[in-house]
Simulated scan of single mutants.
Amino acid sequence: MIELKNIGVRFSERDILKDISVMFHPGEIIGLVAPNGTGKSTLMNVIMNYVNPNKGKVILNDRLEYTNKKNEVKIHQLVSMMPDQSDLYDQISGTEHLKIFSSMWKSDATLIESTIKELGMDSYVNKRTGTYSLGMRQRLCFAMQIVSNTQVMLMDEVMNGLDPTHVELISQILVKKKSEGKTIIVASHLLENLEKYADRIYFMIDGQLMLINDGLKEREITTVRVIGMTDDLKEKFSNEFTETNVQTLPNGIVLIDVRGYDSKKLGDIVEFLKVNQVTEFSFGKVTLNDLYSMHYQEG
């Protein structure tokens, strides 16, 4: 378990992180979502003690804190961050990179071969990394994180440069690691993918964490998504369905909140749309992309 307690970071008279207090538990995948420059990388760097907060502290397993160098070494035996592609050495092979990470964290050496096989890296892993494509390098960075086998794993844009097949593969491995009791914190812009496997998803808003996925995993219909609804028609709809919340996204899509509606009320809304010659609509739920648009994109 890792706890952030009243974390605050201030750069150049600007608050990057403001009094963040949250706990991340074993067997949990946490998603962090925000545009660049809004604090997610800073938050990860605070967890690693690469950035010293102006206030607050990081606590691991209820007892370890970054109070001295000895404790930092102990924490870094249990908490790791996925390396960046710029951290790779072009003159040595992928296998050598994996051996270095396995040795640094004193993990089970058999993880190297099993990870290579699981990620489909056999055909190139013994070649110099300077010959790798962007996707190959990204898979190697992910593999290095996996062979470290730490209790807490931090990953910033883990899916960067990967094709859909490997995005799905790495997603499956993350879920597997979660089942082993790992705490995994992932910053990602692939929102649909993140929504599939993350237990909790936070937006970074004004230097604070906002939990936003409470209702994302609901099975029942919560929303009618409408394309091509004019302002006049929205006003007409609101006059007819006075207790129904209607929200327009910056991309012009209209979301009609129908949580708790029975089949008759849903039928009335469908009939209204058809009578007013609106044909592009669908039933479902609010997505992570919708929420991102609401919070971060200007109309």
Rank of each mutant, 00 (worst) to 15 (best):
I2S: 09
E3Q: 11
E3P: 00
L4D: 08
I7Q: 04
I7C: 03
R14S: 10
I16M: 09
V22K: 08
N45H: 13
N49D: 15
G56I: 04
L60G: 04
L60F: 12
N68W: 00
N71H: 08
Q77W: 03
L88R: 09
I92M: 09
G94S: 07
H97A: 05
K106M: 09
I112S: 01
S114D: 09
L119S: 04
Y124F: 15
K127I: 00
L134T: 14
R137G: 11
R139Q: 10
L140N: 05
F142S: 04
M144C: 13
N149W: 02
Q151Y: 02
E157T: 01
N160M: 08
T165M: 12
H166I: 13
H166K: 11
H166F: 15
I173K: 08
V175L: 13
S179P: 06
E180M: 12
T183P: 05
A187Q: 02
L190T: 07
Y197M: 14
D199H: 04
R200V: 12
M204N: 00
G207Y: 02
N213T: 02
D214G: 07
E218W: 06
R219P: 02
I221C: 13
R225A: 11
D231Q: 13
K234D: 03
L255T: 09
I256A: 10
R259L: 13
G260N: 11
K265M: 13
I269E: 10
K274I: 14
K274V: 13
V278A: 06
F283P: 07
G284C: 09
L288P: 08
N289L: 06
Y296T: 08
Y296L: 10
